[in-house]
Design a protein around this nucleic acid. Structure first.
Lengths: 342, 342
DNA sequence: CTGAAAGCGCTTACAG
DNA sequence: CTGAAAGCGCTTACAG
């Protein structure tokens, strides 16, 4: 078994992890100077820097970010709170987020909220306990969680939505507007009998409301609707499709809450001998990577997840420097991508 | 703007976040007692506990885990390092892990390693810096990262594999044995022309090696092989299928590195007018949720991700109590699930 | 450009 | 069951 210090002969290293003081002693400078070097190499003299660099290598020093965070009240950690990991429409955004944060030397605390505000509350509390520099959330909030989120110095960022009165910052888009756009698109393509599959949750609800509003405004006929559990996933398709066939009149297009569910419906429709989009059209949501790869390719609404990540991170940086945010809500918009499925 | 303290009239609260001392003062006890109450409520007298509880509520106290972790050298945080989030075969395992850890009051630092050992090294360093109680990794290691992983008090757990000589603990299964099982299964079903789609990475490689070894041992004929980038995803299917058609002899079964890729191949095959499994059979890997829901349902190898999560967490707990681990490697096995696709 | 010193907010033997 | 006190390992004005 190899242990730290085994390959050092000149200096008798202690068995414990080396600390800043050990490095300082090794380099013949004070701990303060080592600290300065680590956080901002340019402020120390070149020759000193070199000695410190050598001392760090020789001792195998690994900074203690718990101590650093306590002393500086900057944890260099951001909490990311999302409902699910599997079949999640957020995954591209989260992946972009985690990677951009890593590039900025910031780590990510991941919290899975499910659909429970209680879980969300606990996770916000945990993030606050760890003095997260920011909390990025797409989970369900209630009054208690909002109150909680306002406390503490952590910047609270809501993503994938644009609430009336953001707690800290919101980076998202209008779900209602997205729903309206889909309605307009389907009217323009001549569809007459849409069926909406809405996941239990305010955001999907808002899209459906927007859809119905616009559909009515454009003189569209009857709309039917089904509900599925969050998140809208591939596995829901069997039941949704079976229910579809029991409707009085078969719809000509199904609007889904995710590309995964849309994919599932295409599979089900084809297994039942229907052609997509001729016999049944399908619209997804999110432009997940599968959307452009499915046969037929899936018509969907694209959200620029990487942009959400970038805007969030830019705001965190500003907040970290003590600057005020130029705006409380950033609308990244969306884009309807017409492909083969509708 | 609401701030902490706004709704307290009796006690003049400071503008800063309340600390343990504030709670102690409010409850008329020492900080040590409050600390004890928070970490182990049973050790304080019932009446004291009640006063402390009230003081915590009144002050809106949120513990500082940075300070707590520094003092106790237990961060209550576990680092989870995985290659990707999207289309990842680990997601069920990770989801189970994060939820079980949350239930145990432990937070998760998520790191995305990609295929780069350099990234992995940096993330291990970060985890060590944050004094993670454990580092759970399924990412690629090299010599440097192994050395690093051995240092520090964090328990290092490798999941989804069973290396010769685990650094700390390994919780996984034999990929080679899984490959052999698939070969045996396909022979028993009478397939004669398998095509392996292997992701660039040692683990998928090991399954393919196991497959070929067993296939040969059972007197099987020629095997063809294609390579895809990690991870094996739905989107790879188009190219893989196109390449398939250019082979001298069309295979009768394709063995994929994930259920997502298997799903994609089914879609491609059907779009080309082939029937699955009659004209082309497909085998997946991982028993992701889509596998049982696809049409046809996908024959695959199930890994008990929840069990991996449980074993890992049990080990972390033991390690936290200072107990030695009963074993250095835990084989959770796997199970071939025969469905419709092969 | 660098050092001495105070302080960040907890935990934990040690005593009682 | 509880308190006083030392200590965890950093950062950061302050002074030079």
């Amino acid at each position: 078994m190899k242990r730290p210090g085994d390959n050092l002969r000149l200096v008798a290293e202690p068995a414990r992890n080396p600390t800043l003081d050990d490095v300082a002693a090794h380099a013949g400078v004070s701990a303060a100077t080592v600290s300065r070097f680590i956080n901002n190499p340019k402020v120390v003299a070149a020759s000193t820097a070199e000695r410190i660099r050598a001392a760090i290598a020789a001792t195998g020093y690994i900074p203690n970010l718990l101590a650093g965070g306590l002393a500086s009240s900057r944890s260099r950690m951001v909490a990311v709170l999302i409902p699910h990991l599997t079949d999640s429409i957020f995954n591209d955004t989260i992946e972009a987020m985690v990677e951009e944060l890593a590039a900025a030397g910031t780590n990510v605390m991941l919290g899975l909220t499910g659909v429970s505000p209680a879980r969300t509350e606990e996770l916000i509390r945990d993030a606050l306990s760890r003095r997260a520099d920011a909390i990025i959330s797409s989970g369900p909030l209630n009054e208690t969680t909002c109150d909680l989120a306002q406390r503490g110095p952590s910047l609270f960022i809501q993503i994938w939505e644009l609430p009336e009165d953001p707690i800290g910052l919101a980076v998202g888009f209008s779900h209602r507007a997205a729903g309206r756009d889909v309605a307009r698109f389907l009217v323009s393509r001549g569809y007459t009998r849409p069926h909406l599959v809405t996941a239990d949750g305010s955001r999907a609800r808002m899209r459906s409301d927007g859809f119905i509003e616009e559909w009515r405004a454009l003189g569209g006929g009857s709309v039917t609707e089904a509900t599925v559990d969050i998140p809208s996933r591939f596995g829901h398709a069997r039941r949704v499709f079976a229910d579809l066939r029991r409707l009085d009149e078969m719809p000509d297009v199904v609007v889904c809450g995710s590309d995964y569910l849309a994919q599932g419906l295409i599979v089900e429709a084809q297994a039942a001998g229907l052609r997509v989009p001729d016999n049944l059209a399908v619209v997804g949501f999110g432009n997940s990577s599968i959307a452009g790869e499915m046969r037929p390719t899936i018509t969907t609404v694209e959200i620029d997840g990487a942009r959400i990540a970038r805007e969030a991170i830019a705001a965190i940086r500003r907040h970290g420097r003590g600057e005020a945010l130029p705006e409380r809500a950033i609308d990244v918009g969306f884009r309807l991508i017409a492909r083969e499925s509708a």
